[in-house]
Write a protein that binds this DNA or RNA. Sequence first.
DNA 1: TGATCACTGGAGCTTCAACTCCACTGATGG
DNA 2: CCATCAGTGGAGTTGAAGCTCCAGTGATCA
Lengths: 141, 141
Amino acid sequence: MLLTQTAEYALRAMAVLAARWSTGRVTSSQLARDANIPSHYVSKVMRRLVVAGLVDARRGHHGGFRLARAPEEITFMQVLDAVDFQSHEKHCAFGLGACDPDNPCILHPAYSALQDCFFAWAESTTLVSAREQGVDVLPAR
Amino acid sequence: MLLTQTAEYALRAMAVLAARWSTGRVTSSQLARDANIPSHYVSKVMRRLVVAGLVDARRGHHGGFRLARAPEEITFMQVLDAVDFQSHEKHCAFGLGACDPDNPCILHPAYSALQDCFFAWAESTTLVSAREQGVDVLPAR
DNA sequence: TGATCACTGGAGCTTCAACTCCACTGATGG
DNA sequence: CCATCAGTGGAGTTGAAGCTCCAGTGATCA
């Protein structure tokens, strides 16, 4: 619930890249370890972020991934969109096409409130909030 | 994203029952139609709500479902819990057991904000907000 | 008491997200 | 150039959520 597994992986990976923003590139195996993503699945997730223009990839020696722009310029919404299109389309709780504030279904107000809160969060949160935590990605033991 | 399909079905069904709160019981086929749930799947969803004590079921003539208590006494959180246990457990964005405010992972603050907003919504919203919309479940054409 | 209605619950199918595997391609350094 | 590194991308597997089917059971009405 809330986020798909892949969306969560994407956020983790981006958080790791943000933490390493000034330190060069990160390879998929490092990402797999640091972001706690199944090793063979990293490339799938990263590919979508690369295609979306959020991440820059380079092959070969000293290759790897890094953010395509500064952490403060990347919102969570952009990350979620990259892995999960239509994530910012409002959808009616009754699965109806014709449902808007003027002509709402019975769950419209309640459901709208949830979606508004989610969108506000996703659009106002950037990767800096992750980066500000410092370079240590995982909590100290 | 946000809610599972089954969770959404459960909320819809409960909204329909809330709207019919003073009008007697609703059968599964009525629920299937009004709440827009696959007809053979209604019984699965309803069963969980019955077991959770949120809905009262009766068989035979004039049987069907109705809320076990008044709409204002049923929160969305209770409904979500009924279909999807562990929905109100906070879970670390890095999938770690040991992650708390004192010893947070890098995504903790951002992720926490989202979960807080979700829990606040689920706990403060009751079925009255659905019921207040009146007896018409779907928007007028 | 029999007919019918409507929930119950188990068994099984379907679909898709999540995940794995691997051959290929491009880049770098020696 | 050759060896090696590291992302790319297609093909296939898996497991769980979502959904279907249907025989069983309990309740009501005539």
